[in-house]
């Protein structure tokens, strides 16, 4: 509660400074609209913004889910398959040398202007951090646990699921936290490159028509969504961590 209050105070001060800057400099509203103007735009276009926000939220959420599942599956696969470690791992590392943003036009070309090219963009951007943090965690199991399991005559796949996976959940949780930050970036970039829906598309459209107040309003909603997403995923990550500590 205390933290919420602190955030509110900071936000109020920022809005005040913003309004003062606009008044003091007399800057044109199509360069930098004041907070009141943005609030008006937000209210006037609430139906439109809500509709576009739902699209972006869907892209990000589906992308996040898919990325989290695919990343975890990849990490587990790398643990059990020497062949995957030999051939897939170097490829994964190499794939990180390609900036994901550069792939956005290609994804749009292949998967069209709909939500799937954006979902894929989000998946691509979070897949590697999730897979690599989880894989690291799986490999760093306390060797003492593994010694114990060895003397107990454990089956390897049971060691994986009863010892390695629980011990790696905190690492997986940090991967998810990162993913919550990256996923909206992926989706919005996808929307900028080519879309007919979503907050990124709305921002581009508004900017093209010099409706900077609408652009700011969309940006504000996007920022709010990202913060909420981060907080939500943070809570899930905390739960995962608490479950094994």
């Amino acid at each position: 509660m205390r933290r919420l209050l602190d955030v509110a105070v900071t936000a109020a001060v920022a809005v005040l400074v913003w309004q003062l800057v606009v008044c003091a400099t007399g800057v044109q509203h199509f360069i930098l609209p004041g907070p009141i103007r943005v609030a008006e735009a937000l209210y006037d276009h609430r139906a439109l913004i809500a509709e576009e926000a739902m699209v972006t939220a869907a892209e990000v959420t589906i992308g996040l889910l898919l990325g989290a599942v695919l990343g975890a599956a990849t990490a587990l696969h790398l643990m059990v398959s020497p062949l995957a470690r030999r051939f897939l791992l170097p490829f994964l590392v190499f794939s990180q040398a390609v900036p994901v943003f550069a792939l956005a036009p290609l994804l749009t070309l292949w998967f069209g202007y709909g939500i799937w090219s954006k979902i894929l963009m989000a998946v691509l951007i979070i897949y590697f951090p999730v897979a690599s943090t989880f894989y690291d965690g799986l490999r760093r199991t306390d060797p003492g646990f593994l010694d114990l399991a060895e003397t107990m005559g454990a089956q390897p796949e049971r060691v994986l699921f009863l010892l390695r996976v629980p011990a790696a959940l905190p690492s997986y949780a940090s991967g998810l936290r990162l993913a919550a930050v990256y996923a909206p970036i992926g989706a919005v970039i996808g929307e900028w490159v080519g879309a007919s829906q979503g907050l990124g598309y709305l921002m581009l459209l508004a900017s093209g028509r010099a409706k900077i107040d609408l652009m700011f309003a969309a940006l504000l909603v996007l920022a709010l969504f990202t913060v909420l997403l981060h907080a939500g995923i943070g809570r899930i990550a905390d739960r995962l961590q608490k479950a094994v500590q």
Binding site: G144, F145, L148, A243, V244, Q245
Partner: peptide, 14 residues
């Protein structure tokens, strides 16, 4: 046929 005990208790925290 062996049981093992180490310096640390090796109890998984979960």
């Amino acid at each position: 046929r062996i049981a093992y005990m180490a310096q640390s208790d090796l109890l998984p925290p979960w």
